[in-house]
């Protein structure tokens, strides 16, 4: 059952802590040339042909946004990320990148950050 209680405030300090643990990923995100060559390696993209489901798009608009805003995000933004990192990625680790960027590690961290703020896949969502 979906709870009617108001969601707790976002703990931006905790998000910053989680981001600081994996600073390497920020560097690798900054190398991404946005070439889009990773698109065809994602089975979700290949089935749905949704331009917002390519590995690079998911990483840039979830973890990339978190790094860019230094963790200062609101619940609405995290809810938007939820659809990218939980619904559109199965963490199957089959995505490739010409630079060797590990996209699924980025999605996994974005998921961890969302979960730390109580934003996660709920199977009782309406």
């Amino acid at each position: 059952m979906v709870s009617d209680r108001p969601a707790p405030a976002i703990d931006q300090h905790r998000i910053k802590q989680l981001l600081a643990q994996k600073k390497q990923l920020k560097l690798f995100l900054s190398i991404c040339a946005k070439c889009g060559l990773c698109a065809e390696s994602c089975f979700y993209y290949r089935n749905h042909r949704d331009p917002k489901a390519t590995p690079a798009y998911k990483a840039v608009h979830s973890l990339g946004r978190l790094f860019k805003k230094r963790g200062k995000v609101n619940r609405h933004e995290l809810e938007q990320m939820k659809s990218l990192v939980f619904d559109k990625c199965a963490l199957c680790r089959r995505c490739y990148c010409p630079f060797g960027i590990d996209v699924s590690s980025m999605i996994a961290l974005a998921r961890a950050i969302c979960r730390s703020q109580g934003v996660y896949q709920r199977f009782d969502d309406k």
């Binding site: 390497q24 690798f28 630079f99 960027i101």
Partner: peptide, 27 residues
Amino acid sequence: LGHMIFFFFTRLGINSEHSLAAGSRTW
């Protein structure tokens, strides 16, 4: 554009899972 230099390091030098060198995760 610094990927001109980074490409060789990320692909060959650094032992990450996706590098062509012997891989182990660095994160």
